[in-house]
């Protein structure tokens, strides 16, 4: 998994909680990288799962909520780091449509070895969008957070309903998005 996910996670935990919590999570968790992340590196995704689990224990917050919150934060950071992907589109549905056709293609140019999830749009009209998430990793919740972040970025009220299609494993899910009036 790309290092930016790890560095952003560390920074988010530092900001939201404290540097001490970050130090404790890393100390308490068996990590191959010893928690020394750089955004250009690549790390095992189990490390982030272990860290989120420890954070949940320390803060008594559900893992799903934490992951979803991280998704929202990550989308926000992407808009700052890679504004080019957000220039061409002006609403959530349009942006989601460009993930496969544009964003992932650009990512693969820079990181040919990146293992990316697939976001396939099964149905879309002006109001509703149904899409599937599929990955080798269990980050359906992260995806939900990212979608929420996108809706926030475009200042749209969108209801998101997620159905897990992988027996709670979190690596295959269906999202139904509905634009809400106002």
């Amino acid at each position: 998994m790309k290092g930016i996910v790890f560095t952003e996670f560390i920074e988010m935990v530092e900001d939201v909680f404290s540097p001490e919590i970050v130090d404790q999570i890393i100390n308490d968790t068996e990590l191959d990288s010893d928690g020394a992340y750089t955004s250009v590196g690549t790390y095992d995704h189990h490390e982030i799962l272990a860290m989120v689990t420890r954070l949940s224990e320390l803060t008594s917050m559900p893992v799903d909520d934490l992951v979803q919150a991280f998704g929202k934060h990550l989308l926000n950071r992407f808009t700052e780091l890679y504004p080019v992907f957000f220039k061409e589109v002006d609403d959530t549905f349009s942006f989601l449509d460009t993930i496969e056709s544009h964003v992932h293609i650009e990512v693969l140019k820079l990181y040919p070895d990146a293992e990316l999830p697939t976001f396939s749009i099964d149905h879309a009209d002006g109001k509703t969008l149904i899409m599937s998430y599929k990955s080798t990793r269990p980050f359906a919740m992260l995806a939900k957070g990212l979608i929420k972040g996108a809706a926030e970025h475009f200042s749209e009220k969108i209801s998101i309903e997620m159905v897990d299609l992988s027996n709670g494993e979190g690596n295959h899910a269906r999202f139904e998005l509905k634009k809400e009036a106002g």
Binding site: E20, D23, I26, G35, Y37, T38, V40, G41
Partner: peptide
């Protein structure tokens, strides 16, 4: 932060930097 935590953080940052440098090279 206590000095030990700060030191651990310093070591992590340095290690990350070296990894980044190695990657860069």
């Amino acid at each position: 932060m206590d000095p030990e935590a700060l030191e651990r953080r310093f070591h992590r940052e340095r290690k990350a930097r070296k990894a980044a440098e190695q990657l860069l090279e």
